[in-house]
C-alpha cells in the first residue's frame, strides 16, 4: 500500500481493475470452462498477455498523469507489483505445464530456446524493480533509484522480443506489431516536453513527480 498518501478512490479502482484477470483465472480454473481444449496453454499465454498489457499501462502512467492529474501516479507502485505478480505466475505456469517442474528440463530449455531466456531476463529485471519499489530502498538508492527504474524500457523491449520470438513459429506478427507500436507511441509522447502551463498542474505546485516523489516520471 502506498505510504505517501492514503489510498484514494482512484487508487482502489485501479487496484481492483488490475486484479480482475487474476479473478478471471480463478473463476475459469475452479468455476469451470472457458479455457478451451488446451487449458494449460491458454493459462500460460493469457498470463503472458496480461503481464505485457499491464506493463504498458504502468509505462504509460506518467503520460496519463499529464492529462488526468498526478493523482494517477499514486497507484503506479500497486500496478507495477500486479504486473510482476502476473509475470511470476506466468513463469510458474510455464514451469508446471511445460516441464512438470522438472528443473533439468527447464535448464535445458533456457539454453536452447532464446525466447525463454529473453523472457527470464525480463522477469529478473522486473523483480529488481519490485524489490526496490518501497520507501526504504528509494531512500538508500537515492539518485540511482531513478536510473534503476528506467529499466522499464528494457523490460518492455525484452517482453516484446519474447513475444516476437514466440510468434515466429507461425510468422504471425500482427499482435506483436500492435504492442510494439503502442510502446513506441507512448515513448514518443512521453519524450515530448510537458506543456509549460496547464490548469491541472500550476507551476507553483510543481510537477507530478515533485508531489509524488515515489513515482518519478521517467
Amino acid at each position: 500500500m502506498h505510504r505517501d498518501s492514503a489510498p484514494n478512490g482512484l487508487w482502489w479502482a485501479l487496484f481492483l481493475w488490475a486484479s480482475l484477470p487474476g479473478w478471471a483465472l480463478v473463476v475459469q480454473v475452479f468455476g469451470g470452462g472457458g479455457l478451451g481444449p488446451n487449458p494449460q496453454e491458454a493459462i500460460i499465454r493469457g498470463l503472458g498477455q496480461v503481464s505485457l498489457v499491464l506493463l504498458l499501462w504502468v509505462y504509460a502512467m506518467p503520460l496519463w498523469a499529464r492529462w488526468a492529474g498526478g493523482q494517477v501516479l499514486t497507484a503506479r507502485r500497486a500496478m507495477g507489483l500486479w504486473t510482476f505478480a502476473y509475470a511470476v505466475v506466468h513463469f510458474v505456469a510455464f514451469l508446471q505445464f511445460e516441464h512438470d517442474l522438472v528443473l533439468a528440463a527447464v535448464w535445458n530449455d533456457i539454453g536452447q530456446r532464446p525466447f525463454v531466456s529473453v523472457g527470464l531476463i525480463g522477469l529478473f529485471l522486473l523483480a529488481a524493480l519490485a524489490v526496490t519499489s518501497n520507501r526504504i530502498a528509494m531512500r538508500r538508492l537515492g539518485v540511482r533509484w531513478k536510473r534503476l527504474h528506467r529499466a522499464i524500457h528494457l523490460i518492455v523491449i525484452l517482453s516484446l522480443a519474447h513475444f516476437f520470438l514466440h510468434k515466429m513459429g507461425k510468422n504471425d506478427f500482427g499482435e506483436v506489431v500492435v504492442y510494439a507500436g503502442l510502446f513506441l507511441g507512448i515513448a514518443l509522447l512521453k519524450a515530448l516536453p510537458t506543456p509549460a502551463k496547464s490548469p491541472r498542474a500550476p507551476s507553483s505546485a510543481g510537477s507530478a513527480s515533485a508531489r509524488f516523489p515515489h513515482t518519478p516520471d521517467s
Binding site: L20, Q28, G46, W57
Partner: peptide, 18 residues
C-alpha cells in the same frame, strides 16, 4: 471461448478476458 487475455487493442481497454 474467452481466453485470459484479449488480443490486440482490446487488451488495453479492458484487460480481463471473461
Amino acid at each position: 471461448a474467452g481466453r485470459l487475455g484479449i488480443a490486440g487493442l482490446t487488451g488495453l481497454t479492458g484487460i480481463t478476458g471473461l
